[in-house]
Design a protein around this nucleic acid. Sequence first.
DNA 1: AGTTGTCGTAACAGTAATAGTTACATCGCT
DNA 2: AGCGATGTAACTATTACTGTTACGACAACT
Lengths: 144, 144
Amino acid sequence: MSANSRLTIAAHALAWIGLYQRQGHEVATSEQIAASASTNPVVIRRLLGDLRRAGLVESRRGVGAGWSLARDLESMTLLDVYEAVEPGPLFALHRAAPDPGCVVGHGIQPAMQRIYDVIEEKLRCELARVTLKDVLQDVLAVPR
Amino acid sequence: MSANSRLTIAAHALAWIGLYQRQGHEVATSEQIAASASTNPVVIRRLLGDLRRAGLVESRRGVGAGWSLARDLESMTLLDVYEAVEPGPLFALHRAAPDPGCVVGHGIQPAMQRIYDVIEEKLRCELARVTLKDVLQDVLAVPR
DNA sequence: AGTTGTCGTAACAGTAATAGTTACATCGCT
DNA sequence: AGCGATGTAACTATTACTGTTACGACAACT
């Protein structure tokens, strides 16, 4: 499906900031997070920018700048992250409108859309079950 | 997420063939289906090729060739189609392996993978609930 | 006031997948 | 033998994500 890693990296960043703050630090820099996630700081800044617009993190500028959580990890779910970071739908309909003169062409889009709506709702339910605190807990529980 | 229309078009094709056969025809051509779906015959042939490999349709060659259902529409679910047509996972992990020396970098992949596995299983359950007969029924129920 | 370190963002290249198109060999019926 | 459709290769176009460089904006510190 040409899956992307945006949800993974965003969760990684939030867990990283949460753990870092738990260790007594005020803010985390995009460079630190990027090093942990093996990616580029700009990628992190873009993703965290989306999360800031969604009210999940805050950023400070100037010297000693960086990112901090806007809410407790316990109050954030993967659904919040997903919505902040993945705009589009899971499945697409036809690129070009199907033939409206054909019975199937006429009815297929409403029919499939209804199915896709149900499926996306289920997906959201599952994502909403998992808080970022759960994620961090799972991360820390992995044996080394 | 950069969603694609493969599942939609494949369902369209199956519903079209099913209805066409119900009307007494033996086989449907990729050109007929492509016209209904407003796409190119080769796109249809590629998708139906995947469905043939999955045992959902059969193809005949030579004069009077075309596509027919290998099983009843009632015995096919959207999960069968999804599996035939969408190889990859819904969400990707990191492109490059995260820093194994970092606690988060070390534990994030198993943690997220477990979450993604659960979510994909739920998705499959939902897809398995819908047969292609249901789809065709819904299509025909759309008012014109 | 100047220096410094970080964010915010634009701009561009690289990669990959889907989709559309053309072309043609192959097959099997008539 | 001729015909009509599949099967498939090859190429292009489009799109999205990712990675990278660059630089202005900003705020703290000396």
